[in-house]
């Protein structure tokens, strides 16, 4: 079985993002970029499935500009067999990403597609579900446990009410939640090895994907700030303050 893994590059989760003063975007120049944390979890899960003998090949997929190569090399260094780089200079909406993945899925015929449940830049949480819809296959979102056997995926999902388990026939789209696994660190020899692993570059324009985006972002703003609060010195003062506000 082959596994496709979505591997998006985003502003590192430790960066405190700044909105440009003119409201046209956020400052990304000179800001540290990293793999979307949920995508590292997705790749780790795929690698573990390969190590358990459930899958033979793990392919990382990135959609983005020419300089995405270095990022995809990290995915290869982590252990993916090969990478597909769908090249575009334009921003890609979740629907366009899902349509792009559909084209790759038709070509690669994977048994599993594992994506992060959301990217921590746009926080959209859409691509996996959209791909599953377009592909007409099951989706198992927010996964915290994945078992593959007898042509089925049994997936435990983190939902608001607790933990839901569902069963789905392969091929399946899985999106990862935080507690699915802890991604491995990349070791130096693996970075060397990754240099010889193949990266297929495909122009997005050559895939025949409808890239129309009917949602336009017209303004960016910083969130409203909460005003600086007060410090109290002990429990008694805190209770008094809360009683004054009518909260106790």
């Amino acid at each position: 079985m082959k596994i496709l893994v979505g591997y998006k590059r985003v502003v590192d989760y430790n960066v405190r993002i700044q909105v440009k003063p003119d409201g046209t975007g956020v400052v990304t120049d000179g800001v540290k970029l990293s793999a979307n944390p949920f995508d590292d979890i997705a790749l780790e899960e795929a690698l573990r499935l390969r190590e358990r003998g459930v899958a033979e090949e793990v392919v990382v997929v990135g959609i983005g500009p020419a300089d995405l190569t270095a990022h995809l090399r990290n995915g290869l260094a982590m252990g993916a067999n090969r990478a597909i780089h769908v090249q575009t200079a334009d921003a890609v909406s979740p629907l366009t990403a899902a349509r792009t993945f559909l084209k790759l899925v038709e070509k690669e015929q994977p048994g599993l597609v594992i994506l992060g449940k959301q990217a921590i830049d746009d926080d959209a949480n859409q691509t996996g579900q959209m791909l599953a819809a377009l592909w007409d296959r099951p989706q198992a979102t927010f996964a915290s446990k994945v078992e593959i056997a007898d042509g089925k995926a049994t997936v435990t999902r983190e939902v608001d009410a607790g933990l839901e388990t569902i069963e789905a026939e392969l091929p399946v789209v899985i999106t990862t939640d935080l507690r699915l696994n802890e991604p491995r660190f990349i070791k130096l020899p693996d970075i060397m090895k990754a240099k010889s692993k193949p990266i297929d570059v495909i122009e997005l324009g050559s895939l025949g994907v409808d890239v129309a985006d009917h949602i336009k972002t017209i303004h960016y703003a910083a969130p409203p700030k909460r005003s600086k609060g007060v410090m109290v010195k002990d429990a008694a003062e805190l209770v008094t303050a809360l009683k004054q506000k009518g909260l106790l």
């Binding site: 629907l95 859409q126 819809a133 979102t141």
Partner: peptide
């Protein structure tokens, strides 16, 4: 988690992007 799971699947079948 109910809506986040469901709405994008509806949006994609309708051929539209979603506002999250």
């Amino acid at each position: 988690t109910f809506g986040k799971d469901l709405a994008p699947r509806v949006a994609a079948l309708l051929g539209v992007s979603q506002v999250s």
